[in-house]
Nucleic acid binder design. Structure first.
Lengths: 211, 211
DNA sequence: GCCTGTGAAGACGTTCACAGCA
DNA sequence: TGCTGTGAACGTCTTCACAGGC
């Protein structure tokens, strides 16, 4: 493999491969070909080989990929062989559902702080035992608990403000659930989770296929 | 404009343009150039013009786009000038948060049914007043309440089963919050909302920029 | 003059086809 | 033989640059 720019889509697919490999491992499959894995993931076999080739030679010619080894390799590539500490901003419906959502922890992500501005919420504890703090204490707590990633679940109008604070505190990653584009410097990466765009997409495709 | 295949990304951006135009309208802006709108949306001006050109000529040369008209046009393209009825599957943490989440209704989406399999939940009402039904009554209710889109928020293992039922019932759009690839025929479109992929993405970018 | 609409160029990502190796 | 790794071909999306029209 040589140095090349890695497509963003490749990283997304690595996540998908990883989940499917986990499932294969659980089913006792030791070795898998790019063709079978591709079918399971719904992509082209060459795509898988190319994606993996960006990072090394993980397969055995004539045989395929050893499931267990490949899982280790992909986890290593993605940086998942460590704990990632999350801080939640905005303990509303969505925010508190996210904290309770068990799927995060499975992959090494854990909420270590939750912030809100509503005085009625401050001091209360979430189901996980996590206490809700006032945003004012944010900088101190982020440092103390070594927060890696900020999860923004505040109303649209407050999202950019929260992001600004996160950047000042030196956070490099933001998962943004609010339906607005957040402006950040290059040192920080934002991933948006925007259901309304997805719904609009469905609306468009259903409407236009019906005509 | 002529007939051309419309990029998927174009549809996604139309949603973003629409939201920003709504904001401009609220601020009393009548007319906007592709350049200014582009800056606000974080895209290239030519991109906006090209995206819109797939659907018609909405601008005025030498002037720009009339905000109010453009909003109407985009809503029309996306199929948002109607009500869209949603059915929720899986009234867990995430599911109930989605129903309570006010942002849907703003854009014409409304939950008209909620299903679960847990006997303890059946018959209870969500904060919105919506009663939780057993999945067994699904087909009847979907027809009766004219559900357009199914929202899947069940555990990963049950997602494909729910999708199969939805397809049998003739549903053409699925918003899938479970972290698995759902297989559907061409008549049905699936949009995935997958936080764990997004988190993995952040993990990768933070890890690799730190090295 | 100014900004849209659009063919052409460029960048990017995916798929093909086959060489290379167990 | 069988399946990976990979340069080359292909297709798609984005950006440029300018013609066209208010």
């Amino acid at each position: 493999m040589k140095f090349a720019k890695i497509p963003l889509a490749t990283i997304n697919r690595l996540s998908i491969y990883l989940r499917n490999l986990d499932e294969l491992l659980a089913n006792g499959i030791d070795v898998i070909s790019s063709e079978r894995l591709a079918k399971q993931c719904g992509v082209n076999p060459a795509q898988i080989r190319k994606d993996l080739a960006y990072f090394g030679e993980f397969g055995v010619r004539g045989v395929g990929y050893r499931v267990k080894d490949l899982i280790t390799q992909i986890r290593d590539i993605l940086g998942l062989n460590r704990r990632w500490n999350l801080a939640l901003f905005g303990v509303g419906n969505l925010g508190s559902a996210l904290v309770r959502h068990g799927n995060f922890m499975k992959h090494g992500y854990q909420f270590v702080a939750a912030f809100d501005v509503d005085p009625k919420k401050i001091g209360k504890r979430l189901a996980s035992g996590l206490a809700i703090e006032h945003v004012d204490r944010f900088e101190e707590i982020v440092k103390e608990r070594q927060v890696d990633i900020g999860v923004i679940a505040v109303p649209p109008g407050s999202a950019q403000g929260v992001a600004n604070q996160l950047i000042l505190a030196g956070i490099n990653g933001i998962l943004n659930f609010s339906p607005v584009q957040i402006q950040v410097p290059d040192c920080c990466r934002v991933e948006n989770v925007d259901f309304s765009i997805k719904l609009d997409n469905l609306a468009y495709h259903i409407s236009s296929s019906a005509t």
